[in-house]
Design a protein around this nucleic acid. Structure first.
Length: 904
RNA sequence: GGGUGGUUAGCUCAGUUGGUUAGAGCGCCUGCUUUACACGCAGGAGGCCGGAGGUUCGAGUCCUCCACCGCCCACCA
């Protein structure tokens, strides 16, 4: 690997200059390629959620890729064989919709073109815009294994799709059936339940009177008609019944009677059904099994006829009599008007209700009865069903959701799941691998296009016209990308994958389907952990959308702030699964941090030039200087924190810890202190420690800010003697592990005292408005810390502008045995210093805490072991107390450990 | 209707098994061209941790109830 960094580091970090150059060297060095290493332990695998092949990158993608890249780079640096497999999705309805819009602009429709011609156009569109998303992904610096890239329509995934379909078909778990489904008249296709968005819309409730066929059949005094309330009067032409609740006293006499359906010559029955809410409207529901989900179910229960009055094109059908051909919403007004003129319309009311709309084109969905293909997923209560297995995998912990709260959301969805409608009346996608025989009418389902009918052998076969729901192929993604159903090495080695990282908005669409189909096909879970991120919102918290016009283009942000800054801004200080507001100030702050890192590095690297002795810089343990011991201790605590946070997917937390360490501990204090020794040339030199801390910090930061850390790494390497593990690229350097023995409480206490003194002087100076460049006289009463303060006197002098500074051992043993006395003529100010951890006091405090803990423990354990309590109290109370006992015991143990350590 | 998340500084948010004096970024106020950095440095103001109870030696953190705000799911015509 050769990166050209042989130039002086500029004063300000310029992201644009370095990013592409660095990415290309990574790429050509082959660092992204995953290697199967049977001796390398369990691999770490992430399959990238495939974006729409013709789509463009939005901030959600940027967030997703930043998180995944960080996890992947981290694991790779930990020495784990790591695979991050990228891909793209053909996105059936979305892509077809775009091309159809283009056609429409030329006044054409796909039907005029025909299937073959149209698909050619779609492929052209894919080829034209298909590369954009890759180019964009690269600019984000993502370290995915591009050679393993997969597209959902590639031969491999396509074979997986057909194999899955045929297997399920042969098991009887895929079936074709006439059922009521959500139909989008504009897209002219069926939609799954998930593809329908419900929107609150103002509407009107129409009260329509249906007269009894035989008024004499009810006792005098009862109404001779029944009034129904509906928001869709046009569908009354397809009514085949009226339903009331069986217990409704108003209608008891009417159940079983017949009514005349206005505007038609039909007579329909009144039935009693549990699903009716007597309080709603009139308590009587007109039943249109052909155009409403609930009505369809009621119709099934009472064997009501089905009359379809709205067609696939959204116009009224021939069953709508004189309204045939009328557009459905116009028919609504016309039917209402006619009902009114004939005296059947009792009244109308304003009514706010939710209307199902097509997620893609926003047209109002029409429930219609059609032949569709379904997957029988069973129910969570059937352990052998698809849903049952997907349920169990999460319940028994084989799959963990992060954050955990989504577990319940997931389970709740499965508890109410219904069969999955997988056919779409589109052309762009995986065509359903079923053929119908012209001769015998039998179906043939096959992985390879069949030569003849499976039943009669006739070659006269017609393939089903429909394609599969896009989510059917994405549901196979973790195993279809790795080579399943073939017995591939990648599949054997990398499956089940480790982490599936995606937005919580597609938990049902995609994650649940992958779990269902993954277990079905492979017998194993597709991934161990589902790591969910939140939605990126604008600065005011609104969802970003093109129609709102509040979207931000990630690439534009990359241009302005740099990739590292964008990634840092997106992923820092946000808890897993919660939404993120991204505004300019967040980005600026991230860019400033990058610049801070750059300049700290620039200082260290410049200082290292020509240094003659850096011995021991690599392990950072040679210097016994308290400043060095202090920063090494802080560094290792940070390493520990960062690793721990990463283990639990708290990436934002990890970055926050790094930010604080770099900016506060390293830059504001350690570098400032080190400058003094550098200037005076006093020994031991801080240079080995500066080098060590910078080097380790870069490694720690690399998964989050890959470009800047690599650029600095290259500059740093030139100044460092080869020692230890120093690869040519930081990408392949090892991730730091904390050295637990590096904490030095003595140095920590002493430095803390020094910092206290400096802060106290600065503070007083600001309050008394003493100019920063005016030297003051001061005396430090160091009481027990004379040696340390004397040795650090130059630091105190320089950082707080004190001269002369004297150190005494004060005899004062009052409340504040230590302090600093400032001489500000004519004032003398004594500032107490308390920033020292007094081991005696600390021990005493811990003892007291331990006593309290023990007292509590005794009480709770007495309670828990009391048979009377166990017999009387509620089980959950007992359980609570038992848990309390356990946590108290843990706490006692921990306190004991700390005390032991302090005393030794 | 059923779930679920939130309510902490002026704004946006962290706060991991309860533990000394509750943090950050941005904004605000006061000073600073201190030879790494003005994308900076130093200092400062600003919090009844939504409300009410409870458990505990100790609660922002655990329990109960309440109030707003948000999201998801659902076949109320």
């Amino acid at each position: 690997m050769a990166i050209d960094s042989s130039h002086d580091m500029p004063r300000a970090y310029n992201a644009a200059d370095v990013e592409r150059r660095i990415y290309d060297t990574w790429l050509s060095a082959g660092y992204f390629a995953a290697n199967r290493d049977p001796g390398g332990g369990t691999p770490f695998t992430i399959i990238m959620p495939p974006p729409n092949v013709t789509g463009e990158l939005h901030l959600g993608h940027a967030l997703e890729k930043a998180l995944e890249d960080a996890l992947v780079r981290w694991r790779r640096m930990c020495g784990v064989p790591t695979l991050w497999l990228p891909g793209t999705d053909h996105a059936g309805i979305a892509t077809q919709w775009v091309v159809e819009q283009q056609l429409a602009a030329q006044g054409q429709s796909r039907h005029e073109l025909g299937r073959e011609k149209f698909l050619e156009l779609v492929w052209q569109h894919v080829e034209r815009s298909g590369g954009i998303i890759h180019e964009q992904s690269r600019r984000l610096g993502i370290s995915a294994d591009w050679d393993r890239h997969k597209f959902t329509l590639d031969p491999g995934p396509a074979k997986a799709v057909r194999t899955t379909f045929v297997n399920l078909y042969n098991k009887g778990l895929i079936y074709r059936h006439e059922r009521i489904i959500n139909w989008c008249p504009r897209c002219a296709t069926a939609l799954s339940d998930l593809e329908v968005d419900y929107q609150e819309q103002p509407g009107r409730l129409y009260y329509i009177r249906y007269p009894l066929e035989d008024p004499s059949s009810v006792p005098d005094g009862t109404p001779k008609h029944i009034t129904v309330a509906t928001t869709r009067p046009e569908t009354m032409l397809g009514d085949t019944g009226v339903a009331v609740h069986g217990d409704d006293p108003r209608y008891r006499e009417l159940v079983g009677k017949l009514v005349l359906l206005p505007l038609t010559d039909r007579v329909i029955p009144i039935v009693a059904d549990e699903a009716i809410t007597p309080e709603f409207g009139t308590g009587a529901l007109k039943v249109t099994p052909g155009h409403d989900m609930l009505d369809f179910e009621i119709g099934e229960r009472h064997q009501l006829e089905i009359v379809t009055v709205v067609g696939f094109d959204g116009n009224m059908t021939e069953h709508a009599g004189k309204y045939a051909g009328t557009e459905r919403f116009r028919a609504r007004d016309e039917v209402a008007a006619e009902l009114e003129s004939l005296g059947f319309l009792e009244k109308t009311e304003e009514y706010q209700h939710s209307v199902g709309c097509c997620q893609r084109c926003n047209a109002v969905v029409e429930p219609l009865i059609t032949q569709q293909w379904f997957v029988n997923v069973g129910s969570h209560e059937q352990p052998d069903s698809i849903a049952g297995k997907a349920y169990a995998a999460v319940v028994d912990g084989r799959i963990k959701l992060v954050p955990e709260r989504f577990t319940r959301v997931y389970l709740n969805w499965l508890e109410n799941i219904r069969d999955w409608c997988i056919s779409r009346q589109l052309w762009w996608g995986h065509r359903i691998p079923v053929w119908y025989c012209d001769d015998c009418g039998q179906q043939t389902a096959a992985v390879e296009d069949p030569d003849g009918c499976a039943a009669c052998g006739s070659p006269r076969l017609q393939q089903d016209n429909d394609v599969l729901d896009t989510w059917f192929s994405s549901g196979l993604w973790p195993h279809s990308t790795l080579g399943w159903p073939d017995d591939s090495d990648d599949f054997k080695y990398f499956y089940p994958t480790s982490v599936l990282e995606t937005g919580y908005d597609i938990l049902f669409f995609w994650v649940a389907r992958m779990i269902m189909l993954g277990i079905e096909n492979t017998g194993d879970v597709p991934f161990r952990t589902v790591f969910l991120h939140g939605m990126v919102r604008d600065a005011s918290g609104a969802k970003m959308s093109k129609t709102r016009g509040n979207t931000m283009d990630p690439l534009e942000l990359v241009d302005r702030y740099g990739t590292d800054a964008l990634r840092f801004a997106l992923t820092t200080g946000a808890a897993p699964g919660s939404d993120i507001r991204l505004g300019e100030s967040r980005l600026e702050s991230a860019r400033n941090f990058a610049n801070k890192v750059w300049n700290a590095a620039r200082f260290v690297i410049t200082s290292l030039r020509g240094a003659d002795n850096l011995d021991g810089w690599f392990d950072g343990r040679v210097s016994r200087h308290r400043e060095d011991l202090w920063i090494i201790g802080r560094l290792n605590r940070t390493i520990n924190d960062v690793n721990r946070s990463l283990e639990s997917f708290e990436l934002g937390e990890a970055q926050q810890k790094l930010y604080d360490f770099i900016w506060n501990d390293f830059c504001d204090w350690y570098i400032e202190m080190a400058k003094i020794r550098l200037r005076s040339g006093s020994q031991p030199s801080p240079l080995p420690t500066l080098a060590h801390v910078l080097e380790r910090t870069l490694r720690l930061l690399h998964p989050f800010m890959p470009f800047i850390t690599e650029e600095i790494w290259q500059n740093l390497l030139e100044q460092l003697p080869t020692e230890g593990d120093l690869p040519a690229s930081i990408m392949v350097a090892s991730y730091p592990k904390a050295d637990e023995t590096s904490q030095d409480t003595e140095a920590e206490g002493e430095i803390s005292l020094v910092m206290q003194a400096i802060r106290a002087v600065r503070n007083t100076r600001a309050q008394l408005r003493i100019p920063a460049n005016e030297q003051l006289e001061a005396i430090v009463e160091a009481n027990g810390f004379q040696k340390a303060i004397e040795e650090e006197a130059e630091v105190i002098r320089s950082l707080s502008r004190i001269n002369p500074l004297r150190v005494t051992s004060a005899s004062d043993t009052g409340e504040h045995p230590r302090g600093i006395t400032l001489v500000v003529n004519p004032l003398v100010v004594r500032l107490p210093l308390e920033g020292v951890v007094d081991l005696g006091e600390e021990t005493e405090r811990l003892r007291k805490e331990l006593d309290d803990c023990q007292r509590n423990l005794d009480r709770v354990s007495a309670l828990v072991s009391n048979p009377a309590f166990r017999a009387k109290a509620k089980p959950e109370v007992v359980e609570n107390e038992e848990e309390r006992l356990k946590s108290l015991e843990e706490r006692r143990q921990r306190l004991n450990e700390i005390l032991e350590q302090l005393e030794s």
